[in-house]
Amino acid sequence: MAGLLIFSFLVGAVLGQRFRVMVLLPLTLAMGLAAIPVGLVAHLAFFDGLKGFAFCALALQGGYLFGSLARFWLAAARASRVFARPLKTAR
């Protein structure tokens, strides 16, 4: 379960770097549709599968938040480096 949560977080972080927030809705829906047969194959109870799906969805969204914050932080660092150069004045 922990490995799946880490994987979900990392996928969310990658998506946060590249996409807008609307990518989370179809991805969460696809994860929910995949959780039903995986829970049946793994012989999990319905509520155990639902709990795993909820934790993975939360990890995905947390990773997305982390990735988008990292993107904006890197953009701000890059912008401050570009615009913080002193102007050369004639003497």
Rank of each mutant, 00 (worst) to 15 (best):
A2R: 15
A2P: 15
G3R: 12
G3C: 12
G3E: 15
I6V: 12
I6D: 08
F7S: 11
S8A: 09
S8G: 11
L10A: 07
L10Q: 02
V11T: 06
V11M: 07
G12C: 07
V14Y: 12
V14Q: 12
L15Y: 09
G16Y: 00
G16T: 06
Q17E: 11
R18P: 15
R18D: 13
F19Q: 09
V21E: 15
L25T: 12
P26W: 07
P26M: 05
P26V: 03
P26C: 03
T28H: 04
T28G: 08
T28I: 02
L29W: 07
L29C: 00
L29F: 07
A30M: 00
A30E: 02
L33Y: 00
A34H: 09
A35Q: 00
A35E: 03
P37D: 01
P37S: 01
P37C: 03
V38N: 10
V38W: 06
V38K: 10
G39M: 05
G39E: 08
G39S: 06
L40I: 01
L40R: 06
L40E: 03
V41I: 10
A42N: 02
A42M: 08
H43Q: 13
H43L: 11
L44E: 10
L44V: 05
A45F: 00
A45H: 03
A45R: 00
F46D: 15
F47T: 14
F47L: 14
F47N: 15
D48M: 08
G49T: 03
L50M: 01
L50D: 09
L50K: 04
L50N: 09
K51S: 12
K51N: 12
K51T: 11
G52C: 03
G52R: 05
A54I: 00
A54W: 10
A54Q: 02
F55N: 03
C56P: 06
L58K: 05
L58I: 15
A59N: 02
A59E: 06
A59G: 03
Q61M: 14
Q61K: 11
Q61C: 15
Q61P: 15
G62C: 07
G62F: 09
Y64D: 04
L65E: 06
L65D: 07
L65A: 13
F66H: 06
F66M: 09
F66L: 13
L69D: 12
L69F: 14
L69P: 06
A70C: 12
A70K: 11
A70I: 10
A70L: 13
W73D: 13
A75H: 14
A77L: 11
A79C: 08
A79N: 05
A79Q: 08
R81Y: 04
R81E: 11
V82W: 13
V82H: 12
V82Q: 13
R85D: 14
R85I: 09
